[in-house]
Amino acid sequence: MLLKNFNVLVVDDVVLMCDFLYGVAKKVPGCYAFKALDGKTAAETLENEAIDLLITDIEMKGPTGLELIYRVRSGSFASTSHDIPIIIFSGNAYLELIQQSISYDVNDFLAKPITADQLIRKIQHHLQTEKQIKSAAHYLALNSDFSAKTTVPDENRKVSVAIVRELNPKAEAEAVDTDTSGKKADEKDFLFWPEHATTGYFQIDRRLRNFAFNISCFHNVFVGNCKPVAIESERKRACEACDYLFHIAKNIRHKERRQQFWLLFNQRLEKLKPLAAELNSVNIKHHSQVLLLLKRLSYWWMQTCNRPIIQKNDDDGAEHG
């Protein structure tokens, strides 16, 4: 049994197959299913919903399944993390296709036909098993062909503020060289992930960003005096994003050995917990209470992100907690 709600997106251009996959995904306890009959719709769903598992066919019109996978792995979607499990569901297993799928670290390759029971087991397995996925930059560099054809223009991206910067070591070195006056001050503006950060750290990065984005949306609809149903919907999303942050952090903490980092990060998460509980229960009709809560959330945010958790050593550039 899965402990939290997961969003599963199934993509197949054959209506019958898509409905079958959708019906099966819906049956998995703890899963909420989305379906798309083409790559374009799938891309929109990935952009707007925090998808936790993608099941896609390969041979489709528009963005093909492989293009879609490339875009997920290269971090092109605002709401969906690049390291989600991806299952290819295809009737053909051509060598070239499999090789390309492997380079994108696809989690599974299922050959059609597959029974509902087998698929349910696969979904449960991949939602409970973490696979080490490289950084989005790695996949971006892997194949620039697709990006030329399919990238979403920057102005259409919903998240434009990155609170955590993913650093390329070389680029960082160049930046330090050019800035002779105050490099320390610059570096402390961001949280710095270790150079060889595992997927876990990037997950935290994404979840923090998602949380920031959703809180910001909630704030916008609230102060914009939108309809209560819209405010409720944004509040729900923000709460889900916050829950997901706790969930991911808890999972990674169990596998990590960096005590100092987790001690600090955990302290900051503990401070967020009562705020999250209040966000979940606050009456949106009480204007002043909601505004006060939003203010406290923004203080939490500044306290958390303005103080680096990981700093660099002067001598060798290695990080420590």
Binding site: V14, L16, M17, F20, E59, G91, N92, P113
Partner: peptide, 14 residues
């Protein structure tokens, strides 16, 4: 080829 591929998948399902 694409049409046959899709039809084949459907046939396999039912």
């Amino acid at each position: 080829a694409r049409l046959c591929h899709s039809l084949k998948s459907m046939c396999g399902l039912v």
